[in-house]
Amino acid sequence: MLPSPSLIVQSLVDGVFLGFLFSLVALGLSLVFGVMGFINFAHGDFLMASAYLVWVLASSLRTEPLATAALTVPLFFVVGAAVYFLVARPLLGREPLMQIAVTVGVGYVLQNVALMSFRAEPRASLSYALNTYFGLGPVSVHAAKLVAALMSFAIVVGLDYLLKRTWFGLAVRATAYDRETAMLMGVDVNKVYVAVFGLGIALTALASSLWMTFGQVDPYLGASFGLVSWIVIALGGLGGVPGILASSLIIGVVQSLTTNIVSPSVKMAAASVVFLLVLWFRPRGLFGKV
């Protein structure tokens, strides 16, 4: 039985919206990986932790989930900086196996603290303002998803601009390119690392506020966001923002199509298969240079 064309079009649109949100999460991870060479397997779990914070704030203060970002984003920047000093810095330059293992451990801590505090049931704090649908031809558009996609896109493009046009961006790129030369040029590499790590985690907080306008959180939300982010980096290479955007959209569409046409329970398998195929056939990513 063939899926109806309107279902396919609807899935494409939903997948693109989801893809933009993925790009916001993956960008932070790719900055940390690209600039510091640090492998973070707990990236998505910070999004999960922040999503619970959004839920608590939004339901206790009776505010819009999106408004909580004003609090969570700066808070998670500080959290990121703290995690950098406690966990990432001692592991910089150590073997990848240890970095992966330790960040898996951080993820476990976050997941299971969440599980003990909030139990396994999913929690939602739907946006009142944005929880409407409007028709656009055959497609029905969820306002919250549209806003999340547009904001993600704007921020990703804005950060790209920041990295290309400002002194901070120059320092970050110089550090990524050659740490020692950057130091000789007077870049405080340690400050760059703190900023990049903090920024990466702060972006997951922002993404969680956007996610909570239409999605729900359970302790394992982060595991799938984390895996998706890594897959996006594998697809996009480390070529920069255009590669991340394109591969995020691909993964978003793949997940949305499998969810709607096959079953939601195989959407991570679909993304994983894409990932393995890319590793086998295009080990440098879909869009060239690493």
């Binding site: 594998a234 329970s265 991570m268 080990p283």
Partner: peptide, 26 residues
């Protein structure tokens, strides 16, 4: 063969478990 290692090797083993897990559901 393609020199996949470190983080990418770890991720592909994670992907294998995810694929088998969801395939087994089907």
């Amino acid at each position: 063969r393609f020199g996949i290692r470190e983080v990418w090797y770890a991720l592909s083993t994670v992907a294998l478990v995810v694929v088998l897990h969801e395939l087994a559901i089907v």
